[in-house]
Amino acid sequence: MLKEVCVENFTWVPMAIARGGNRIELCDNLSIGGTTVSHGVAAKTIRYCHLHHTKVMTMVRPRGGNFIYSNEEIEIMQNDIVHFKQLGTDGVVIGCLNESGWIDENSFGQLLDSAKGLDVTFHMAFDHIKPEYQLEAIDWLAEHGVNRILTHGGPESSSIEGNLNRLKELVDYAKDKIIIMPGGGITDKNLSFIASKLKISEVHGTKIVGQLDLI
């Protein structure tokens, strides 16, 4: 079971790895769902993680709010992806939608072009795709080389335990196509239960190796 620990600054990274985190997702502003981190935080985190044989997935998202981006914002994300690639990130966490609630295929394709050679996670923008289109979205993302989808299985306000049936549908459908990585409300307390129900290989969260506190 790969445990991806989501952190919003370097401070928590050494503790997350020491407690058994296998991969770091690096972002800022978790209170609004995560945004792009600074150069300094990314450079320090990537360097430290690689010295400790841990991979880093870097969030690229220029702001909070919806996932419908202007051409200028897509260009900003492309530049950030190239920058993080130069810093040595192992992968990026990206996503964008159109006004119809479907993947913005053209814009996302541009992001994928910039991310060539990197591991790619489509983030929780997936949960804003209408449920009736999500299986089709899994196929589209798999066909375009995305490695995994981070999903809560339902609205952000819902409990992860209440979404297990839907998550199981997504996991089963995506088998041998793309990784479904559940996140949002998974902790070291409920991880074993959720993993046993879903038969998953990767999980994501801020507390999957316990609460990260400075003493």
Rank of each mutant, 00 (worst) to 15 (best):
K3T: 13
V5I: 07
V7E: 02
N9V: 14
T11P: 04
P14L: 12
P14R: 09
I17L: 08
A18L: 13
R19V: 08
R19Q: 10
G21D: 02
I24W: 03
L26F: 03
C27G: 06
N29R: 04
L30Q: 06
S31I: 10
T36M: 10
V37M: 03
H39W: 11
I46R: 01
T54D: 04
G64I: 10
G64T: 13
N66T: 11
I68K: 01
N71E: 14
E72D: 11
E75L: 15
D80S: 07
G88Q: 03
G88L: 01
D90M: 02
L97H: 07
N98Y: 01
S107P: 10
S107A: 14
F108A: 01
L111H: 10
L112C: 14
D113F: 11
K116Q: 08
G117H: 02
D139W: 14
D139K: 12
H144G: 10
G154Q: 13
N163W: 07
K168Q: 06
K168R: 08
E169H: 15
K175V: 07
K177I: 00
I180T: 05
I180L: 07
G185S: 14
I186M: 02
T187A: 02
N190L: 00
A195R: 07
A195G: 10
L198H: 13
E202I: 10
V203C: 05
L212K: 03
L214Q: 14
